[in-house]
Each structure stands twice: as C-alpha cells, then as structure tokens.
Design a protein around this nucleic acid. Structure first.
Ligand SMILES: Nc1ccn([C@H]2C[C@H](O)[C@@H](COP(=O)(O)OP(=O)(O)OP(=O)(O)O)O2)c(=O)n1
Ligand SMILES: [Mg+2]
Ligand SMILES: [Mg+2]
Length: 856
DNA sequence: ATAATCAGCGCG
DNA sequence: AAAGCGCGCTGATTAT
C-alpha cells in the first residue's frame, strides 16, 4: 500500500529507542468493540471533511451549563474498583527552611553526549504515543486570562513578582483543585478500566490484576490478538499498517481513595477506507466526555494533554474542546508539570524526552518501575506498569506543586497553551502553494547542475559539492587555499567550509578558490530550497492527505499541519517541526547569478498563503521584545528612557555606532543594517566574545572590544543586571522568568571554566528569553479565551507562533478591526511594566508580501 | 548495514 | 583570553 511505502521514507527512530519506547506504551487501550485500524498519526489519518472543524459562531460557549448535566445519560461500567490507595501521610512539610528551594537532587552528571540529538528524534516519534491531559486554571471569566494576569501584575505594581507567591492562588482565584494541592490536601486515586459493553468485574488489588482481568474478560478476535502482540508487545512499529489508537485512558483522581480511570473510545477503525470521524457518533463521545470530565469536583491527571486533545479534534468530535477547556474541567498534565519543574533536563542529557518513562526514571528513580507493577511481559503488564508509573509520578510531582505554588499558575498557562496548540495542529493548517515553488524548482535543478559542472571544471575533478570533506580536499589540498587559524587553533577548525570561511576565501586572490567558494555558497542555499520545501517528507504527507480527502476545494493548495512542541525548549519557548514554520526562509533568493535576463527570484514565504475563502494573513510581531523586557527586568534607567521615548535601539546603533564610528559596512546580502545591529546588541547582552563580535561585524577585535564595553557602560543597569542574574543563579542554582518559571543550571558552579561561563550566559539569556515566552504565551491564552462576538471572529485562526510573533488567518473584511484588537491583546497582557510593549502589525495575501498596518 | 553524530544553515 | 542564547532539518561522516 502506498501509505506504507511512504511511511517507510520517514526517518525511522533509532532502533534502540524503539525498544525503550515500547516499554513506555502509554495509557492507551484499544476498544475491542471496534476494529483495529491504522495509527492516525502516520500521516494517513483522514481528516473528516464532513465534520467541519469550524462551526461558525457557536463553536465554543463557555457560558452554557456544566458539562456534567447529562451525566446520568451515559452509563459508566466500572470493571472493578481496583484501587490504589495512595493516601499520603499528611506531611508536616519537613523543610520549613528554604521551602522555595528544591532539594538539590543528585544529577546523573556524566552527560551522555548522545542523548541530545536522540531526544529530538524521540520527540518526533512520540507524537502518536503519548496521552493527554487537560486543564486546570479557572479562566471562566471571559476576560479570565487577562484578568488573571492583570491582577497579578497590578498587585505588584510593576515590580518583579514577589518571591513568595503563596497567596497567588487565593488572589487570582485559581481553581480549587490547585488550591487543595498547594495546601497539601490528601488525595488518592483509583483506577478503573471502562469500556462500553463491559460489565463490572471483581475488584483488583493493583494495576496488573486489573489489566489482567481486562485481558481475560475481553474476547479478542484473531486479528486483534495478533495486533496486540505485535503492536504493544515485542516488535511494535509505528509504521505497521495494522495499528491505530482508538482509545484514551484518563485517570480520574479524587479524594478519599475514590477515583477512576476511564477508557474512552475516541474513534473506531477505518476499515474499507471509511473515514474515522464518520464512524464516531459525536453524541456518544460527547456523553463520554461529559460524564468523564464534568459534573464533579474531581481532578484529572494525564500525560500529554495536547496529544489527546488533538486526537479528539481530529476524530471529529465538535464539542470536545468545550469540555477540555471548560472552566469546570479539572485536569493536569504530568508531562507539562515535569517540564516546568526542570525544563533543561533534555539538554543536560538527564532524560531523552518528557515521555512518561523517562520522567519517572528521573523523578522517581527506581528505574522507572513501580513496585508490584512491573513484572511480566505482554501488553497488559505494560499497561499495568504504565498506570503504576502515572500513579506514583502524580503523587510525587503534586507534592512539588505544594512546595512551590507558582507552579500551579504556570501549569494553568501551559494547560491552556496545550489546548490551543492541539487546535492549531488539528484545525488551523496553513495553506502552501507547492505548485508555485515547483515551478521555480525546475529552474533550481538546472542551476544546481550547472553549478556542479562548473565547480568540477574549476577543480579539475568531479566531487560532491554537498560534502564538506571532499570540498575541503579540493580547496585546501588540491588548490592550496590557506587553512586559517594557527593561533586560535584550539577551537577553530582550520579546514572549515562554513559560510564565513567561504566568504573569506572568496575574497582572496586565487581565482579558482574564490570561484568554487562562491559556487558552493549559492549551491547550498538553493539546494536547501529543494530539500526543505519541495522534496521534504512533510510535503508528501500533505499531498497524501489532500488526495485522501478528494482534493475538494482549495485548488492546488496544500494544507500544512505542522507540530507544535511545548516541552522541547529549556527557556519556555515553543518549537515547531514537520515542517518547522519558525524557520521558513525569510529573504528572497535570486535564481539568476549567471547573467540570465529575467532576474528570477524566489521567496519561500510567498508560497504560504491565506486560504479559506476571502481571508488574509495578519502578522503581529513584538517590537524589540527582549530589549523591552530587559529594560523592565533590569530597571536600567537609560534603556527605559530610550524605549519610553519611542526609540529604536537597533536603528540607533546601526546609524550612530556601526556606520559612523566603526565603519562597518552593511551586509551585502539580504538583511538590513538594522538586522545587523539587532544581532550585535543581542550578542553583546548575551555574552559574546570580542573575537566573535569582531568577526561578525568585520572589524578588528580591539574595535569590537571597545564596542562591547561602551555599549554596556552606556546602559549601566543592564550591566549590573547581568552580574546580578549570574550571582543569584550561583546562589540558588536556578534562574526565574517574569512569571516565576525556573530553569536549573547546576553547571553555574562548575569548576570547569568553560562549563561555568556557558551556564552564566544561559542564565542571563533564560531570564529574558523566557520572560518573552511568558509574555506571548499569556497573549495566546488570552486570545484563545477571548469572547467572540460575531461569527466572523470565530473564523480567525492562529496559524503560527514565531517566538515573538503571532500569525493569524483572518477574514478579509475584518482585518483592520482584528489588527487593532489583537494588537491590544498582545500589548496588554503584562500591564504596568516599566516600558511600553508595542507590536508591529502587517497583513497580506501571502506570508512573503505582508504590508505594514498602522494601528491607531 | 544500521545507528548515532557532525557540519552547516534556516529562523527568532 | 574570553565559544551570544534558543530551536529543527538535511546530507555526509563516523561509530557500532
Ligand atoms: N539574532 C537574534 C535574533 C533574535 N533574537 C531574539 C531576541 C528578540 O527579541 C527575539 C525576537 O526576534 P525579532 O527578530 O522579532 O527581534 P525584536 O523583536 O527584538 O526586534 P523587532 O522590533 O525587529 O521585532 O528573538 C536573538 O536572541 N538573537
Ligand atoms: Mg520582534
Ligand atoms: Mg519576530
């Protein structure tokens, strides 16, 4: 089958990872009432066309009743009350000293070099495996998010949040569950597998016997058994066309040892090519959600809320979002919580990802196993093990929330973001005009071939232009190019072939070397266009989806459903992949260098367009955002003065210093002098060396040193802020963002200077970059929670977040109005800062042709 | 032969 | 004398 063939093209996860991953099959069970079908996330999942993701004007209504109103309609059939009484001894909180500081946990220090990249792979692949989790903060007020934040900040009058935020929950009316947790209330949960059609069974004493019962009482067809064996047991492969997740498992927590874990059917199999969503009765699903999430004061725990929310939305249940994000829904995500606790674990090599298994291993020790639950093989033992892990992990992590109440606030923000990201992934695709790029592509191919020919001619032998090794042999050995770098040989590769070196070689007298350097530079640029925006796997996936949907509507446009990753950064930013919309080439590339008449050019962003109906793209980008936050956080009077006067630091620097005093020439290629100044400023703030700065600007090291010093002396508050952050980090072991989110940097006290100073730079950067992430996340939450007054407002879609920029797709008629409204939201979420927050707004029919809009 | 890493480069 | 920070993607190279 074609899909299988395609799936095989995807870069598979490392083999060893699959085994590990197998041991971590999350809390999914298949509903045996339904046929098995393929894994929805392998790209072959058919998105329902009949159940439109957008139901104008009435999609969400937080004002209607508690979702639990119809609880009685749907009969829950517990298999057993196999509970695990996790009653925690009400700890007298043994550490009155330094409760704000987490006990330094021995960290597995020998940082395994390998785990870093591997984690990324894992993140790519765990997308279909993790589960879900919902939402905790009470933002029922239409102005909920903004009100929350306003109160928060109003109460502290522009200063940094107080260290003691224990009154946070009371003041901000956070949801009661979190209040309870932070009070250290007893809690426990019980497990119960629930599936339609199953009668009640005998009580079980632990997860394993529960799962066992499930297995023995469940008649499985031959095929099902086979699948179960191959998918959950050994030999699991996400590419196996037999597999499809059809169920989600929720943990329902409650007080006093009464709680349930429910088996929730998401969608049926897709035999005979039937669309998943068509086989789901939304009413059933709705009823399940209602009885599960609503109508009681219990809280719910899960792992990866974003994943489950996305599945629900893709399954075509139009009302699931209301329940997932309903203010009465009490749900928290252990994945997000563990990430909040230590967002840098992945980079330190302590864990490979924030998947359940790794997190358990790290936070609980015990090799990730829970006593009495880990024995045996097979799918049910695995399920039992998983459940035991969730159980133990929740117990442990919630204790941390009790110790550090601001975590509850942060988690509330993140839960809201998770719901929004799920919606973006499932329902807010960006349209891509592949045909347009392909037209250029043919020309690019020709160009690449001619580059190759010419380079081979100059070199006197054929070689692979993509190979840095072969290129180095040609340049440095055959043609005798100088191997720069005897002095600083320590860290510099004398035979480097990166852009800066090739640019340097291109200016030399040797015509052969120069020519090859120029050719390779252009060759690399153009080949990226082909590999990333024409031949890439994500495009094949888009085409398959289009074909499966019968290409109704949309003409030649593809719908790009990328992934929005919430736990893959150490600072609190989001990341994006498949494709990475946060790194789409920005500038126009010229296709003609060889004197052809047309001057053909390509701008990849022109291929990303506003699709649905009469819409336009609307982009809002924070102005000098980290500079502004730095000004606020540092309180530097001079920097605040510049910003309060409406100044543009980058433009100033470009005009006054770089051009006049330093005689820096503006970069020849794309990129303005302002962009150059921007890089310069952030480089200085975040601790660049004079040598690197000089190289970047093309000025002598001494001049760069002078520039650095004079900049920091010009803003003395910034300079002292930098040393204060370092000092504080040394003392506490962590830094905090403006919303109290932490990042631990144990290396700050390393005896190795290299490691120590690296940690110092990260410390400074994390405070500012992380606070900027807090800001835009708060704005995103506020937008997602905003009351929509008209049907048209429901058509506004957030299609991308580019770190300090939000890209919306907006009905053309209301572009101007939305521009104002959205700008107000983005600039208003953090009131009472010491400097104004501004956004630059632009709109257009393609991402590459946005024109600035004036906001009054 | 396959898996993990490196080099290089796109973006903020 | 001092490795700006934060990401993801690709093809080539090295390690197993
Ligand atoms: N070379 C760079 C570019 C950007 N950033 C960070 C800091 C910026 O604040 C943030 C957003 O990037 P922008 O390009 O939007 O830059 P600014 O918001 O600072 O300026 P502008 O007014 O041009 O938007 O990303 C960085 O650290 N290093
Ligand atoms: Mg900006
Ligand atoms: Mg930006």
């Amino acid at each position: 089958m074609a899909l299988g063939a395609f799936a095989r093209r995807v870069r598979p996860p490392p083999k060893q990872e699959v085994d590990k991953w197998l041991a971590e099959v999350p809390l999914w069970r298949r509903n045996p009432n339904y046929a098995w079908s393929e894994d929805e996330d392998n790209g072959e999942n058919l998105k329902s066309g009949s159940v439109a993701p957008e139901r104008k004007g009435r999609e969400v209504d937080h004002d209607d009743g508690v979702p639990g109103g119809s609880e009685g309609d749907w009969e829950l059939k517990p298999i057993g009350e196999l509970c695990r009484n996790l009653k925690q001894p009400r700890r007298p909180e043994p550490a009155p000293q330094e409760t704000s500081r987490r006990a330094p946990r021995p960290r597995p220090k020998p940082r395994p070099r390998q785990t870093q990249k591997r984690q990324r792979r894992e993140i790519r692949d765990d997308k279909d495996e993790e589960d879900f989790a919902p939402q905790v903060i009470d933002l029922s007020n239409p102005e909920g998010a903004s009100g929350l934040l306003s109160n928060l900040f109003a109460s502290q009058r522009g200063a940094a949040l107080p260290d003691n935020v224990s009154d946070l929950s009371a003041r901000s009316n956070l949801n009661r569950f979190l209040g309870e947790v932070s009070c250290g209330a007893e809690y426990s949960f019980t497990l119960l597998l629930l599936a339609k059609g199953y009668g009640s069974g005998p009580p079980a004493s632990n997860w394993r016997s529960a799962a066992q019962f499930f297995s023995t009482s469940t008649p499985l067809s031959k095929d099902q058994k086979k699948v179960l064996k191959t998918k959950i047991g050994t030999g699991f492969s996400k590419l196996d066309p037999e597999g499809h997740v059809v169920g989600a498992c929720f943990l329902r927590t409650g007080r006093g040892g009464k709680g349930n874990i429910d088996f929730l059917p998401l969608c049926k199999g897709r035999e005979s090519g039937l669309d998943l969503a068509e086989e789901v009765d939304p009413k059933e699903l709705d009823g399940t959600m209602v009885s599960f999430l609503g109508g009681n004061a219990q809280a719910h725990v899960c792992v990866d809320f974003q994943g489950i929310a996305r599945r629900l939305m893709r399954a075509g249940d139009p009302s699931c979002r209301r329940h997932l994000t309903h203010p009465k829904t009490r749900l928290l995500d252990l994945k997000l919580l563990s990430w909040l606790l230590e967002p840098g674990l992945v980079h330190e090599g302590a864990i490979a990802s924030y998947a359940l298994g790794d997190v358990c291993r790290h936070f609980l020790g015990q090799g990730g196993r829970v006593e009495g639950e880990g024995e045996g093989d097979g799918p049910f033992a695995t399920v039992a093990r998983e459940l035991g892990m969730v159980d133990a992990l929740a117990t442990s992590l919630l204790r941390e929330v009790g110790k550090l109440p601001s975590l509850a606030f942060n988690l509330g923000v993140e839960m809201n973001i998770a719901a929004l990201l799920a919606r973006m992934e499932a329902s807010f695709p960006l349209a891509y005009n592949l045909e347009e790029v392909r037209r250029h592509g043919e020309r690019i191919d020709g160009k690449l071939r001619s580059f190759e020919e010419e380079a081979h001619g100059v070199a006197g032998e054929p070689f692979n232009l993509r190979s840095w090794k072969e290129l180095g042999a040609v340049l440095y050995d055959k043609l005798g190019a100088p191997q720069l770098a005897s002095r600083t040989s320590r860290n510099q590769n004398p035979r480097s072939t990166d852009e800066s070196r090739l640019a340097w070689l291109a200016k030399l007298n040797d015509p052969k070397v120069a020519r090859i350097a120029c050719i390779v530079l252009e060759f690399r640029r153009l080949s990226q266009v082909v590999s990333k925006y024409i031949d890439a796997d994500w495009l094949r996936e888009c085409e398959l989806r289009r074909d499966a949907e019968g290409r109704r509507g949309g003409g030649t446009l593809l719908e790009v459903h990328c992934r929005w990753n919430q736990t893959s950064t150490a600072t609190g930013r989001l990341s994006c992949s498949d494709p990475n919309l946060q790194a789409v080439t920005k500038y126009t590339q010229s296709l003609q260098a060889g004197g052809q008449g047309g001057g053909e050019k390509i701008n990849i962003r022109d291929a990303f367009v506003a699709k649905q109906g009469a819409t336009r793209l609307l982009a809002l980008d924070y102005s000098q955002i980290e500079i502004r936050l730095l000004a606020h956080l540092s309180g530097c009077g001079k920097l605040c003065g510049v910003l309060n006067a409406g100044g543009d630091l980058f433009a100033n620097l470009a005009r006054d210093w770089l051009c006049k005093k330093m005689n820096v020439q503006a970069p020849s290629r794309e990129g303005s002098a302002r962009d150059q100044a921007k890089r310069t400023v952030y480089s200085i703030i975040y601790g660049t060396s004079a040598m690197a700065l000089g190289q970047q600007l093309g000025i002598p090291v001494a001049a760069a040193q002078t520039l650095k010093r004079s900049f920091l002396e010009h803003f003395p508050g910034v300079k002292s802020f930098i040393s204060n952050v370092k000092e504080s980090c040394r003392a506490k072991g962590f830094v905090q963002t403006i919303l109290q989110r932490r990042r631990y940097l144990p290396e700050i006290n390393s005896s190795q200077r290299q490691d120590r100073e690296a940690a110092e730079r990260k410390a400074v950067n994390t405070v500012v970059q992380g606070s900027a992430a807090d800001l835009i996340k708060a704005a995103m939450v506020r937008w997602s929670r905003m009351r929509r007054a008209t049907p048209e407002e429901w058509e506004v879609r957030l299609v991308a977040q580019i770190h300090d920029e939000l890209l919306f797709e907006v009905p053309e008629r209301i572009v101007d109005h939305q521009a104002e409204q959205l700008a107000a939201i983005m600039t208003g979420v953090f009131p009472n800062l010491k400097v104004p927050i501004l956004v630059n707004v632009s709109s257009g029919s393609t991402w590459g042709s946005l024109q600035k809009i004036k906001i009054k």
